[in-house]
Design a protein around this nucleic acid. Structure first.
Lengths: 250, 250
DNA sequence: CGTATCCTTGAAGGACTTCAAATGTTGTGG
DNA sequence: CCACAACATTTGAAGTCCTTCAAGGATACG
């Protein structure tokens, strides 16, 4: 199997089942490989892209900009994701997609995605399911943003990112690479960078996490998940084996 | 055409095209008609419903409850919507669906929806598109919630609801029935009821709206839309004719 | 080694919450 | 048609969480 497609297959298999035939259809998708420098847009609000973007390596985010210059980050994406899959059926982008750090991506023409869906009903349904999970994550973010204090909301985001990275094999034991600045996290949480810093300090002081040099280590999953009121049901993983990456810190 | 299905057809035609054949498939969907009293759940978090709920008359909302007893409303639904369409491919409900006021609904078995999608590719794609627009609305709410002050956020919600009601023929001129209490609006905005009241007063004082006895009248769409930074692109209507229901108040 | 970026800290101010009570509205039975 | 109960809205006042502004300290990179 081509190395590039491996993460996509792994991602899809974390949320549903693929047959040999479906995998073959995926492997035959024509890809346009690209490198995106940090900060570059892969798609911009108002555009009508003819292709979607498969993230192979790095982190991406989707965002909107508001009148006063503020930025709201809507989603954070990990390798294996197709962040703008929705543009296959929603041709006009209502937000932008950007590389959070230097990224490797592959563009897939909408035409080819249509063909793939036509060849494999199951693959089409799995892609639909993927976009539905995308929506489920928005709902969870809305809830945390509307009804949770900053530190709990931050803890919730960290729980989610850790599980999603684990699902595609990017978490080793209780730690993972997480190259997000406080400003990026702040824009995802709807907070200021200053308050994000203070919230991070709370999580560190409580012994939930270490987070330095872009490396996140979860020291006490259970207490952090309780603090965040984190329930992974909304990620709709195929097997609920995820959700307990490590025990208490000794 | 059966009266019940009319609003669904109208809703779908506001976001895409239906052929005669697609309409026939819709009309033949077996429906279980029900009346739901205000406050009743049509589906609850954790459940695995075997049917989805088509709203025929009234208002519904989707929500999550958090630990301290707070409620976050994730979406407000108008007649013609299938609020839990996603449960066709996400079998476990990650949130609850309830009647905001007394409602008429029709339950449609997932099995029958699957059959309909198999009979009409176009209908399947339109339903996928509908769930994608559902997600687009979450993104917009996330942005307003994270980066807009309360009054602007409230104005944004009112703009959205008015256009969506207009799209299914439930707004006459510049006014519509909107039977939402301040508590419901507050839970949708992530605010307290008290602050929601004060924000409503701002919109009234500025001459943007009247809102009394469950009747909303838009007095100055242009200034309110500007205040809210409202751009209807995210609703992905088929024709962009919507978005200007009335001129300035004289 | 200097520059740019990111993180940390303090202090003042603002937006929103909570609590509590008064006022208004709706529906129901006498 | 009035009285009453239940519910919804309005108002005031005190307190909290978060923001903004501003400056200093780290860390990375050419």
């Amino acid at each position: 199997m081509p190395q590039h497609i491996d993460r996509l297959v792994r991602k899809l298999e974390s949320i549903g089942d693929l047959g040999a035939e479906d995998r073959r259809v995926i492997e035959q998708l024509p890809l346009r490989l690209r490198e995106l420098p940090a900060g570059a847009d892969a798609a911009s609000q108002g555009q009508r892209p003819s292709a979607s973007c498969l993230l192979l390596d790095g982190f991406m985010h989707r965002y909107k900009v508001v009148g006063n210059g503020g930025r709201q980050i809507l989603a954070l994406h990990t390798p294996g994701d197709i962040p703008d899959l929705m543009s296959v059926f929603l041709p006009v982008m209502d937000h932008s997609l950007a590389a959070t750090v230097d990224c490797k991506v592959a563009f897939v023409e909408h035409r080819d995605i249509h063909d793939a869906i036509r060849q494999s009903r199951r693959l089409g349904e799995l892609m639909w399911r993927d976009t539905l999970i995308d929506g489920a994550i928005f709902r969870e973010w809305l809830t945390s943003m509307g009804r949770q204090p900053a530190a709990n909301h931050l803890a919730h985001l960290i729980c989610e990112l850790f599980l999603r990275l684990q699902a595609v094999g990017l978490a080793v034991g209780n730690s993972c690479t997480l190259p997000l600045t406080q400003q990026v996290i702040a824009d995802a949480l709807g907070l200021s960078q200053v308050h994000t810093d203070r919230s991070l300090q709370i999580l560190k002081a409580r012994g939930f996490i270490e987070f330095e040099q872009n490396r996140l280590t979860v020291l006490d999953w259970d207490r952090m998940a309780a603090f965040a009121e984190f329930d992974p049901i909304y990620l709709h993983f195929k097997n609920a084996a995820y959700g307990r990456p490590c025990g208490r810190a000794e």
